[in-house]
Each structure stands twice: as C-alpha cells, then as structure tokens.
Design a protein around this nucleic acid. Structure first.
Lengths: 245, 245
DNA sequence: TCAGAATATTAACATATGTTACACCTGCTA
DNA sequence: TAGCAGGTGTAACATATGTTAATATTCTGA
C-alpha cells in the first residue's frame, strides 16, 4: 500500500505501524476522478465525508453575494480535505477541482473509529489539520497587514513550500494552474490589479510567469518582501500517545 | 467540578461521563492570573503547553516588521488556546491578555494522554479546534472580499455571537475592551479609518459605541451588511466514538 | 483550421484606505 | 491639583486598489 500518497505523507511525520497503515488503507478506497472545474461539494451542503486527494489540485472557496469569491485554501496530493468542517454538518466552503483530480471519500464515522482504535493516528490527524489553521492564520496576516505585492509573494512562496514538501524537490519553477482571477480571489485583489503587480514583479526580476508556469527568480528577495516563514517542515509528535500494537 | 467553565463549555456539546469530567478537571489545575496587557507567550517561543481561559479575554496576535500587528483571534472564557499550534514547537503567534485573565496551563502530553484514555473527548477537542479554523476562514473571507464597514460589522457580530454562546444571554449590548487601534488590527484597517467607519455606522444607526460598550442597534441590517453567518450553535458529534466506561 | 471562449494586457478614471498631524478628552497619579 | 498618557475625533493630503472598457493573446473544440 505504500504507493498511496496519503501513506507516504503520513509516513513523513511518523513511522507508521503495519496496523496503522492498514487502517489508512481502509480509508482510501474507491478513488474517483473529477474533472477540472467540477464541484466536489458546495457551501451549505450537508456533508458527512472527508476526502483524501490522490492526484491534482483542489481548492476551497466561498462566495459572497455580489458574486465575489474568496479562495481559502489549496489542496494537494496527500492532503486531507474536510477536517476543518468536521464540527458542523453544513459545509462552510465549497470544494472545487482546480485541475483534474482523483480523490477518495470516506465517512466521518471512519474518523471516529480511528480515534478509538488508533489514537496515535488520530493525534496525527489532529496535528495535520492544525497545520491548516496555521496556514489560514498566515494568510490572514498577509491579507490584513500587507500590500498586494507582498500578498502575492506570500501566496507563491507558500504554494511552492507545500508543493516542494510533497515532491521533495526544490525547484524554483512551479506549475500553478491558476488564472489571474484565481490568484486575485486567493489574495483579495482584482484580476486587473494582479496583472499590474505581476508585471511589476517581473520588471523587478522577482518572478517570471508564463501560462501556468511560475518561476521564483529571486527567492530571497521574495521571502524578504513577503516576510515569509516556512513552517511546513517537521511536525512535533513528542506529545503523541504511543502506537498501539 | 461543574463550576469549571471548561466543563460547562464541553457539556454544552456532549453529556460528559464522570470519568471524562474527571479527566478534564485534571487538565484544569493551578489557575493563574495575568494582568491586562501582559504576554502569556510570544511568537517564536518554544511552547509545549495549552491554555484554558477561565476568566477574561485573551487574544492571539502576530507582528509584522514595520511594527504592524494582526490580531488573529479572541479567546473567551472556556476557550482552549494553543491547539492550532500543536503541530509545531514554535508558537506562530503571541498570546496577550486583553483584560485581566485567569488561565490554566497543561502540557501537550496531557492532551496525548486524552487521546489514549478518552477518545470521545479527543474527538470533541478535535471538533472544537476545527471551529477555530472555520472562524479564521470566515475572517479571511471578510478581509479578502469586503470593505471596511462590513469587516467591522463582521467582527462585532462574531464577537457577540461567541460571547452570547458563552453567557446564554442575547443582549444587544456587549462589552468590548478594545481600542480603535485594536479593532483596526483585527480587521486590517487603520485606527483613523476605524474611527471614520464607526462614526458613519453610528450616523446610520447601526451601532453605538461608548468606551468599551458596544450596542448593536440594528442587528438585522448589520447581519445583512456583513453577510454574517452564525455558526456557533451546535456541533456535529454524530461521528464521535462512543464514550468509554 | 477556424471560430468562439477564456484569459491577459493596458489605459483612464473613481474610490477606499492610509498617512500625518494636531486638538481634545478622560482618567490617573505624583 | 496639575500634568501626563492613552485614547478619541477630524482634517488635508497621498496612495493602493477597484471599475470599466477596449484590445490582444491564447486555448479549445468542432
């Protein structure tokens, strides 16, 4: 089962026991494909499942009356989607496929079982979903207290950091399958203004963007500009309960 | 032990067993008082504890180079602080006492024990801390996609909703011990602009503010303006594992 | 291969919000 | 009781960002 991206991901944080790996495999059945642009679930839906992303990008978004959209988060291979909404039945945000994606769905009750049978795994889920909180908080800081250019820089760097964590590589070139409108919806700016800023950042030799390919030309200066802190390295598992035999 | 605000809080969501209540009481030892303005821990500190707020307000904040500040969240009586940072050793934000506060501290490892011995309680902690994620996401939406007045309205309503959930009352008058600068730091605006907006909102008979007393004069219109959704009612516990005897 | 639909680029103009500066008030404490 | 510090109110001006609209470019599917 080690061809599962979810197991790979979890194994990065913890040495899983066979029993734990088995439990995870149980969650990852029936992968299903969705085409780019399709909606996996919608804000307000009565959702009782969680998703694991196998392949591709998904994103969480929420709409405002005037048709405005705020993108809350991007979900990559190995990500668990839906944990943040687990406290409520109704989804607080929609999940949309940003590229073609393959996901597995499993019911919330399976998560409940995990709390019973594999407490250490439950603790890991807990910790992982808290990383999402931190990510949201970082974004909030960027939106609340920095200007457009820094917000964009921030977004680029955080996407790069997460994708690199997944791939293990450290490439300055990243594929970002997002339009300028998407970028704007993620950082709270207009498409037109995103365009302006990207032009400026290109002139300043900070980045290069070509279709869906983004190159971080001067990463140190980007980091400086965005006051970016990369948190996606290790996880603190020292407080976890011991694995059960 | 039912005089504990934390037990009271948890009991709102679940009928706790004696054994569970006992476990919680164990977490809530040695309450300690901090004076308004004092820092409970600082961004970057090596934190290995969690806090339970007994009394008063605390807040999480993060600083930006130019001395700018973003307030991430407010913590009220019965709130659990620090869960969102549990994935990492270093705190991503500082915790500051907004009024005089009384808190209990307990080590992360105690949380780990809870996963082992009281899976249902662990699930409840999980769900509760995910409410925090949703709250952050709501704030993110407000900051990214609405103008100042709506952001303020949103903040007021969400504070009111949470305080009402704690108190059980439904009073249009709330005590908000925050200065205009604080409000600005919470919604990403300047003190000067907050002042402008509060004046306008007063003229429009939406609110009234006097020192630390805020009155929601026309709540329906505020809700409309902010596109506010109150989520802090029930919790979905249907997926929780059964309580252990 | 073409036509239509997205997406990107750019300009002119409108607006929300930031910046700086100063006067005022209130509560505190020496 | 004076004076000080923190908070508030307001004005004049500066700037970032939004809006609208027109054109260019790239993608996509028949």
């Amino acid at each position: 089962m080690s061809d599962s991206c979810f197991v790979v991901r979890l194994n990065r944080y913890l040495d899983l026991t066979p029993s734990e790996m088995n439990a995870i495999a149980h969650l990852e059945r029936e992968p299903r494909e969705y085409h780019s642009g399709s909606t996996l679930w919608q804000e307000g839906d009565d959702v009782s499942e969680l998703l694991i992303v196998h392949h591709g990008w998904a994103l969480s978004e929420t709409r405002l009356p005037a048709g405005k959209r705020q993108i809350l988060r991007f979900h990559f291979s190995g990500d668990l989607i839906g944990a943040s909404g687990i406290a409520f039945r109704d989804a607080a945000s929609s999940i949309v496929a940003a590229t073609d994606v393959v996901v597995c769905r499993f019911p919330r009750s399976a998560l409940g079982d995990t709390f019973n049978t594999h407490p250490r795994l439950a603790a890991l889920f807990f910790a992982m979903s808290q990383m999402e909180s931190i990510d949201l908080a970082d974004r909030l800081r960027a939106l609340g207290r920095s200007e457009g250019k820094a917000r964009l820089a921030n977004l680029f760097l955080s996407i790069a950091a997460r994708m690199r964590a997944v791939s293990g590589e450290n490439n300055p070139v990243i594929r970002i399958p997002l339009t300028q409108s998407d970028l704007g919806d993620a950082v709270g700016l207009t498409q037109v203004h995103v365009n302006r800023l990207i032009r400026q950042m290109t002139e300043e030799k900070l980045i290069t963007r070509n279709r869906s390919t983004l190159t971080l030309v001067d990463e140190p200066r980007l980091i400086e500009l965005a006051r970016f802190v990369d948190r996606f390295s290790a996880i603190d598992s020292s407080w976890f309960p011991a694995a059960k035999a």
